[in-house]
Protein backbone atom coordinates (compact mmCIF):
# COMPACT_ATOMS: atom_id res chain seq x y z
CA UNK A 1 0.00 0.00 0.00
CA UNK A 2 1.09 3.56 -0.62
CA UNK A 3 1.09 5.28 2.73
CA UNK A 4 1.67 9.04 2.74
CA UNK A 5 5.20 8.50 4.08
CA UNK A 6 5.93 6.02 1.30
CA UNK A 7 4.73 8.57 -1.19
CA UNK A 8 6.92 11.18 0.40
CA UNK A 9 10.07 9.08 0.20
CA UNK A 10 9.20 8.14 -3.37
CA UNK A 11 8.84 11.81 -4.16
CA UNK A 12 12.10 12.63 -2.46
CA UNK A 13 13.95 9.97 -4.41
CA UNK A 14 12.45 11.12 -7.68
CA UNK A 15 13.32 14.71 -6.83
CA UNK A 16 16.92 13.82 -6.01
CA UNK A 17 17.34 11.95 -9.26
CA UNK A 18 15.93 14.80 -11.34
CA UNK A 19 17.90 17.46 -9.46
CA UNK A 20 21.05 15.42 -10.08
CA UNK A 21 20.38 15.35 -13.81
CA UNK A 22 19.58 19.06 -13.97
CA UNK A 23 22.74 19.93 -12.05
CA UNK A 24 24.65 17.87 -14.60
CA UNK A 25 23.14 19.96 -17.39
CA UNK A 26 24.13 23.13 -15.56
CA UNK A 27 27.71 21.90 -15.10
CA UNK A 28 27.89 20.80 -18.73
CA UNK A 29 26.66 24.17 -19.95
CA UNK A 30 29.17 25.98 -17.74
CA UNK A 31 31.84 23.85 -19.36
CA UNK A 32 30.37 24.54 -22.78
CA UNK A 33 30.79 28.27 -22.22
CA UNK A 34 34.52 27.71 -21.84
CA UNK A 35 34.61 25.10 -24.59
CA UNK A 36 33.35 27.80 -26.94
CA UNK A 37 36.78 29.44 -26.71
CA UNK A 38 38.80 26.65 -28.42
CA UNK A 39 35.79 25.78 -30.60
CA UNK A 40 35.71 29.34 -31.84
CA UNK A 41 39.41 29.27 -32.65
CA UNK A 42 39.16 25.96 -34.47
CA UNK A 43 36.10 27.09 -36.38
CA UNK A 44 37.76 30.33 -37.39
CA UNK A 45 41.01 28.56 -38.29
CA UNK A 46 39.19 26.22 -40.62
CA UNK A 47 36.92 28.80 -42.20
CA UNK A 48 39.04 31.91 -41.74
CA UNK A 49 35.80 33.63 -40.80
CA UNK A 50 37.13 36.30 -38.51
CA UNK A 51 40.06 37.39 -40.70
CA UNK A 52 42.71 35.55 -38.72
CA UNK A 53 45.71 34.54 -40.79
CA UNK A 54 47.89 31.54 -40.13
CA UNK A 55 49.79 32.01 -36.88
CA UNK A 56 52.60 29.64 -37.93
CA UNK A 57 54.64 29.74 -41.09
CA UNK A 58 53.24 27.57 -43.85
CA UNK A 59 55.74 25.10 -45.21
CA UNK A 60 56.94 26.15 -48.63
CA UNK A 61 55.11 24.12 -51.19
CA UNK A 62 55.58 24.67 -54.85
CA UNK A 63 52.44 26.30 -56.16
CA UNK A 64 51.76 27.15 -59.77
CA UNK A 65 51.56 30.87 -60.29
CA UNK A 66 48.33 32.10 -61.80
CA UNK A 67 49.57 34.76 -64.19
CA UNK A 68 46.12 35.32 -65.64
CA UNK A 69 44.99 37.61 -62.80
CA UNK A 70 46.30 40.02 -60.23
CA UNK A 71 45.17 40.63 -56.68
CA UNK A 72 45.75 43.86 -54.85
CA UNK A 73 47.01 43.41 -51.28
CA UNK A 74 46.78 46.49 -49.08
CA UNK A 75 48.81 46.89 -45.90
CA UNK A 76 47.38 48.83 -42.98
CA UNK A 77 49.13 49.43 -39.70
CA UNK A 78 47.57 50.56 -36.43
CA UNK A 79 48.91 51.18 -33.00
CA UNK A 80 46.93 49.85 -30.07
CA UNK A 81 45.84 52.38 -27.46
CA UNK A 82 48.84 53.73 -25.55
CA UNK A 83 51.40 52.69 -28.16
CA UNK A 84 53.10 55.66 -29.87
CA UNK A 85 55.79 53.91 -31.86
CA UNK A 86 56.16 54.64 -35.57
CA UNK A 87 55.06 51.47 -37.34
CA UNK A 88 54.63 51.32 -41.10
CA UNK A 89 54.89 49.09 -44.12
CA UNK A 90 57.33 49.95 -46.87
CA UNK A 91 54.50 49.88 -49.41
CA UNK A 92 50.86 50.91 -48.98
CA UNK A 93 49.75 48.19 -51.35
CA UNK A 94 51.03 45.81 -53.95
CA UNK A 95 49.58 43.92 -56.91
CA UNK A 96 50.52 40.28 -57.02
CA UNK A 97 49.77 37.22 -59.10
CA UNK A 98 48.33 34.39 -57.04
CA UNK A 99 50.97 31.79 -56.32
CA UNK A 100 53.90 34.21 -56.56
CA UNK A 101 55.99 34.67 -53.46
CA UNK A 102 56.24 38.31 -52.35
CA UNK A 103 58.21 39.97 -49.60
CA UNK A 104 57.19 43.23 -47.93
CA UNK A 105 59.07 45.05 -45.23
CA UNK A 106 57.56 46.65 -42.18
CA UNK A 107 59.47 49.16 -40.10
CA UNK A 108 59.00 49.77 -36.42
CA UNK A 109 60.86 52.15 -34.18
CA UNK A 110 61.13 52.39 -30.42
CA UNK A 111 61.41 56.12 -29.71
CA UNK A 112 61.41 55.62 -25.95
CA UNK A 113 64.44 55.23 -23.74
CA UNK A 114 63.43 51.85 -22.35
CA UNK A 115 63.46 48.39 -23.89
CA UNK A 116 60.01 47.23 -25.00
CA UNK A 117 58.43 44.13 -26.45
CA UNK A 118 56.03 44.57 -29.35
CA UNK A 119 53.53 42.10 -30.70
CA UNK A 120 51.72 42.64 -33.98
CA UNK A 121 48.31 41.03 -34.46
CA UNK A 122 47.18 40.54 -38.07
CA UNK A 123 43.68 40.62 -39.46
CA UNK A 124 42.52 40.24 -43.05
CA UNK A 125 39.52 41.78 -44.69
CA UNK A 126 37.34 40.37 -46.23
CA UNK A 127 37.39 37.65 -43.61
CA UNK A 128 36.75 34.90 -46.13
CA UNK A 129 39.96 35.86 -47.94
CA UNK A 130 42.12 35.29 -44.86
CA UNK A 131 42.67 31.62 -45.50
CA UNK A 132 44.09 32.31 -48.99
CA UNK A 133 46.76 34.70 -47.72
CA UNK A 134 49.52 32.31 -46.71
CA UNK A 135 52.52 33.63 -44.82
CA UNK A 136 55.92 31.94 -44.93
CA UNK A 137 57.49 34.44 -42.64
CA UNK A 138 56.00 37.13 -40.51
CA UNK A 139 57.20 39.34 -37.69
CA UNK A 140 53.81 38.70 -36.14
CA UNK A 141 54.79 35.07 -35.47
CA UNK A 142 57.19 36.30 -32.81
CA UNK A 143 57.38 38.86 -30.07
CA UNK A 144 59.63 41.69 -31.15
CA UNK A 145 61.96 43.02 -28.47
CA UNK A 146 63.11 46.56 -29.24
CA UNK A 147 66.06 48.24 -27.54
CA UNK A 148 65.76 51.94 -26.66
CA UNK A 149 65.82 53.93 -29.86
CA UNK A 150 66.04 50.81 -32.02
CA UNK A 151 64.65 50.89 -35.55
CA UNK A 152 63.84 47.47 -36.88
CA UNK A 153 63.05 46.34 -40.40
CA UNK A 154 60.84 43.31 -40.28
CA UNK A 155 60.15 41.14 -43.32
CA UNK A 156 56.91 39.45 -44.17
CA UNK A 157 56.74 36.83 -46.92
CA UNK A 158 53.49 35.61 -48.36
CA UNK A 159 51.74 34.29 -51.38
CA UNK A 160 48.10 34.25 -52.38
CA UNK A 161 46.72 30.76 -52.84
CA UNK A 162 45.73 30.37 -56.51
CA UNK A 163 42.44 28.71 -55.55
CA UNK A 164 41.18 31.98 -54.09
CA UNK A 165 37.76 32.78 -55.58
CA UNK A 166 37.79 35.31 -58.39
CA UNK A 167 35.34 37.62 -56.66
CA UNK A 168 37.98 38.66 -54.16
CA UNK A 169 39.99 41.33 -55.95
CA UNK A 170 41.51 43.11 -52.97
CA UNK A 171 42.76 41.82 -49.64
CA UNK A 172 43.50 44.20 -46.79
CA UNK A 173 46.04 42.97 -44.30
CA UNK A 174 45.90 45.03 -41.13
CA UNK A 175 48.40 44.83 -38.31
CA UNK A 176 47.77 46.22 -34.86
CA UNK A 177 50.85 46.73 -32.75
CA UNK A 178 50.55 46.04 -29.03
CA UNK A 179 52.96 46.83 -26.25
CA UNK A 180 53.27 43.59 -24.32
CA UNK A 181 56.32 44.58 -22.26
CA UNK A 182 54.33 44.47 -19.04
CA UNK A 183 52.23 41.41 -19.71
CA UNK A 184 52.92 38.50 -17.41
CA UNK A 185 51.53 35.90 -19.76
CA UNK A 186 52.75 34.64 -23.07
CA UNK A 187 50.60 35.42 -26.07
CA UNK A 188 49.25 32.48 -27.96
CA UNK A 189 51.45 33.24 -30.94
CA UNK A 190 54.63 33.17 -28.88
CA UNK A 191 54.71 29.37 -28.84
CA UNK A 192 55.92 29.45 -32.39
CA UNK A 193 58.67 31.91 -31.62
CA UNK A 194 61.45 29.30 -31.79
CA UNK A 195 63.92 30.51 -34.43
Amino acid sequence: MNTPTDRQTQHQQANKKLVGRLVLIVAAMFGFGFAMVPLYDVFCDITGLNGKTNSEAVSTVAVDADLSRQVRVQFVTHNAKGVAWPFQSSLPSIKVHPGVMTQVEFVVENPTNRPVIAQAIPSVSPGLGAQYLRKLECFCFNQQPLAPGERKVMPMQFYIAPDMPNDIGTLTLAYTLYDISNRGDQPANAQTAAP
Binding site: V37, Y40, N50, K52, D179, R183, D185, P187, A188, N189
Partner: peptide, 12 residues
Protein backbone atom coordinates in the same frame (compact mmCIF):
# COMPACT_ATOMS: atom_id res chain seq x y z
CA UNK B 1 46.20 38.30 -16.93
CA UNK B 2 44.33 35.84 -19.15
CA UNK B 3 43.66 36.79 -22.77
CA UNK B 4 40.28 35.39 -23.66
CA UNK B 5 39.23 38.67 -25.26
CA UNK B 6 42.54 40.47 -25.62
CA UNK B 7 43.98 40.42 -29.12
CA UNK B 8 47.47 41.27 -27.85
CA UNK B 9 47.52 37.96 -26.02
CA UNK B 10 45.99 35.92 -28.84
CA UNK B 11 42.36 36.34 -27.79
CA UNK B 12 39.51 37.86 -29.73
Amino acid sequence: GTSFFDAAGGGD
